[in-house]
Every structure is written in structure tokens, then in C-alpha cells.
């Protein structure tokens, strides 16, 4: 009974993560992007903590705390401070597809993610099954965010959402990943974010815009 309710809770948390991805896809304000991402990361850290509690694994507890501190607080604060406020970003005008259209595409992608994962092939003994297709949906939707948005800051957030999706899948599917790999993945993420932040502010410096549609030097 305990296991069952933990599984149900994990299902709910994953659904919340997916809904926040949709919220991000359906939003046009940079503040909101970051807020949704922060909330999503905090929910993700709760989900990791849940799995950690279930398995009694100390490394997952560490991962949950790290996720909360770095993804839930650190990255959003840095992104807000160094990008949103300093570059005076407010409303995202560089969106290639209409909100409604991209939401519909998102819905289709979600459905696709579900049907790509045949539940009968999922191994028994998973804490919960729905996070697996949900995480795939989050990965696809994060990719969609990156595709429909031309602003580099928005693309960065799309990539961060993709990462969250992968983490969600990882903790349910393969909660017992070797620690060295988990740590490495996390380290890569942090380094990647730092480098991307540098690039974005470099681009902003040089082009006085963070809009990737202005990046057309390389058209041939």
C-alpha cells in the first residue's frame, strides 16, 4: 500500500512537470519561462526525493538536494539576474509559430510519446510507469520550445527543460544509475549552462540582441 501511494504521488508529480512544460510552451513572457522552469525543477527534486525515500539511496538524496539548490534556485536566480534583468527582456516576440499551433503540436507530441512507449514492454517493479512516457514527452516538448523560439535565452530554457525531462526518466527508469555517471551528468549540465550563459551574454553584447533569427551571418 505504501509503495502504491508513492507511485501515485510520483505519477502526479510527473504530470505536474509535463503541465509546467506546456505552460512554458504557451507563455510569451521571459519571467514566466524562468518561473515555470524553477517550479518544474523544484517538483523534479521532490520526485527525486520520493524515489530516494523509496529506495533508501543516499546518492539520490544528494541528487535531490543538488537539483533543488542548483536547478530550482541557482540557475533561475542567475538567469533572472544576468539575462532577464540585465538584457531587459520582457515579452518574447521572436516566436516562429503561434501559441495555439505549438500547443497543438505539443499535444500531438505528447500523444506520440505515449504511444511510442508500449506499456507492456515496461519492466515490472517500476515505482511508477507514467513518468517514462511523460519524461519523453517533456524531452520532445522542450525540443519544441527550442525550435519555435528564436531568442537564445528562450532556447536555453528549452534545453534546460529537456534536461529535466531526461532526469525525470532517469530516476524512474534507472534509479540505480551508478553514482559516478549521475554526478558526471550533473556536472556536464552545470558546465553547459555556464558556457551557454556566457555565450548568450556574449551574443547580446555583440549583436545588441539575443534573437537567434538575427543570427544570419552564416546563411549561404
Amino acid at each position: 500500500m505504501i509503495t502504491l501511494s508513492e507511485g501515485v504521488l510520483l505519477d502526479l508529480l510527473s504530470v505536474a512537470i509535463l503541465l509546467l512544460t506546456f505552460a512554458c510552451l504557451g507563455s510569451k513572457l521571459f519571467d514566466r519561462y524562468v518561473a515555470y522552469y524553477a517550479l518544474q525543477s523544484i517538483i523534479l527534486s521532490a520526485a527525486i526525493a520520493l524515489v530516494a525515500h523509496h529506495l533508501g539511496a543516499w546518492d539520490l538524496w544528494a541528487l535531490a538536494v543538488l537539483t533543488f539548490l542548483i536547478k530550482g534556485i541557482g540557475i533561475p536566480v542567475i538567469a533572472r539576474h544576468y539575462l532577464i534583468i540585465r538584457l531587459e527582456l520582457k515579452r518574447d516576440v521572436a516566436i516562429s509559430t503561434g501559441i495555439s499551433t505549438s500547443l497543438i503540436i505539443g499535444a500531438v507530441l505528447t500523444a506520440f510519446a505515449y504511444f511510442a512507449i508500449n506499456p507492456s514492454t515496461l519492466p515490472s517493479g517500476l515505482l511508477a510507469t507514467s513518468p517514462v512516457p511523460l519524461s519523453n514527452a517533456v524531452v520532445l516538448l522542450g525540443g519544441l520550445c527550442m525550435v519555435v523560439r528564436r531568442n537564445t535565452v528562450a532556447q536555453l530554457i528549452g534545453w534546460l527543460i529537456v534536461e529535466n525531462g531526461v532526469f525525470l526518466g532517469a530516476i524512474t527508469l534507472v534509479a540505480t544509475f551508478p553514482f559516478i555517471v549521475e554526478a558526471g551528468i550533473f556536472l556536464d549540465l552545470v558546465a553547459g549552462v555556464l558556457i551557454m550563459l556566457t555565450f548568450v551574454s556574449g551574443l547580446a553584447h555583440r549583436l545588441a540582441t539575443t534573437d537567434a533569427s538575427e543570427l544570419r551571418e552564416l546563411r549561404e
Binding site: V139, G143, M146, W159, V162, V166, I195, F199, G202, L215
Partner: peptide, 21 residues
């Protein structure tokens, strides 16, 4: 070159994330 690097890091990181999946 900044543009190329941005394109490179965004596309590759996304791709490699798929590989992680």
C-alpha cells in the same frame, strides 16, 4: 563564430541528450 558556436552547442547538446535517453 559566436553564432556558429551557439548553433553547435544547442544542436549538439540537444542531440547528445537524446543519446542519453
Amino acid at each position: 563564430s559566436l553564432e556558429a558556436a551557439w548553433k553547435y552547442i544547442i544542436i549538439s547538446s540537444f542531440g547528445v541528450t537524446i543519446a542519453l535517453v
